[in-house]
Simulated assay, not measured.
Amino acid sequence: MMSPLALQFYSLASDQQRFVVIRLLWKALDVWEQYNSPGTRPTYQESVSGSIQELDTDLPREALETILAGTDISGIAERYREPIVALRDEDIQLPESAEFAYYAIYNAYRRYILLEPVEDKLLINQLLSSLPSEQAESAFCEALLAQSRTSG
């Protein structure tokens, strides 16, 4: 059975859902940046080639800025290619909440900029999973409330 908050979200028009998602993306970005300060460049070893790669910690912020701008001027899709593969190959080890934040921002970028079919349920689950469990429901509620204030 779906929660009342989820039902409320799914009853919104797509532009209203986007508003809620963007509110939650900012919270996910905060989680990401708690673990990965902007401008830092942690390294990891790629398992296939053995090469050392730098993780672009600014990429999620730039992806969110691209979503807000509505157009990609920074080559975000190309820049995400290697780190997404590295995450899937487990070459990069991130705290679970930071990994959910990274994937949520990437998938929102895919949905809103690349116009790829990313399910609402996946996006919302990743966004809420990036937050501490005791904050997820209130963050979702706050985002829905903020949306209702803009359309009311």
Rank of each mutant, 00 (worst) to 15 (best):
Q8V: 12
S129T: 08
E62C: 02
E99G: 09
E119W: 09
Q17V: 09
I76D: 00
G75D: 07
A98M: 04
D89R: 15
A139D: 15
K27P: 01
D89Y: 09
T43F: 02
T150L: 09
R23Q: 11
R110Q: 14
L7D: 15
S3E: 11
D91H: 02
M1K: 09
E119Q: 12
P60F: 04
Y103H: 06
V20T: 13
S130F: 03
Y35W: 15
E62F: 13
E65Y: 04
E82K: 05
S148Q: 13
T57I: 11
S11I: 04
W32E: 00
Y109G: 01
L55Q: 00
R79K: 15
L114D: 10
Q93H: 07
Y103E: 06
D15V: 08
V20W: 01
E78M: 15
R81L: 10
Y35F: 13
L12M: 09
A108E: 02
L29S: 01
G152D: 12
L24K: 00
N107R: 11
S97G: 04
L64V: 12
N107T: 10
V85M: 12
V21S: 04
A63H: 01
S14N: 03
S47F: 12
L115W: 09
F100L: 08
Q93A: 08
Q126E: 15
A136I: 05
S133V: 10
P95Q: 09
S11P: 01
A63L: 15
V118R: 02
A104P: 03
E137M: 13
G75C: 06
F140E: 01
I84T: 09
S130R: 03
L87E: 04
S3W: 05
A28N: 05
A98R: 02
R149F: 12
L145F: 12
Y10H: 09
S51D: 13
E99A: 15
Y102G: 00
K121G: 05
E134G: 09
E82Y: 07
E99K: 14
P117W: 07
S14Y: 03
Q53H: 13
L128F: 08
V48N: 07
S51I: 11
G70Q: 15
L24V: 07
D120M: 04
P132W: 08
Y10G: 05
N107H: 06
S97L: 05
D91R: 01
I84V: 15
A139Q: 11
I92G: 00
G152M: 13
R111E: 06
E82I: 15
G152P: 06
W32A: 01
W26Q: 11
Y112L: 08
P38V: 14
P60A: 07
E46Q: 10
L94E: 10
L144F: 13
L144Y: 02
L122S: 07
L87F: 05
D30L: 14
L127D: 06
L24F: 02
E119I: 08
Y109D: 00
Y102Q: 04
Y80E: 07
E134T: 09
M1D: 14
Y106V: 01
A104W: 00
Q135E: 14
E96W: 01
Y106E: 02
Q34F: 07
L5N: 11
E62W: 12
E142Y: 09
T66F: 04
N125T: 03
I76T: 01
L7N: 11
E78Q: 14
Y109K: 10
P83S: 08
A13S: 06
R88S: 07
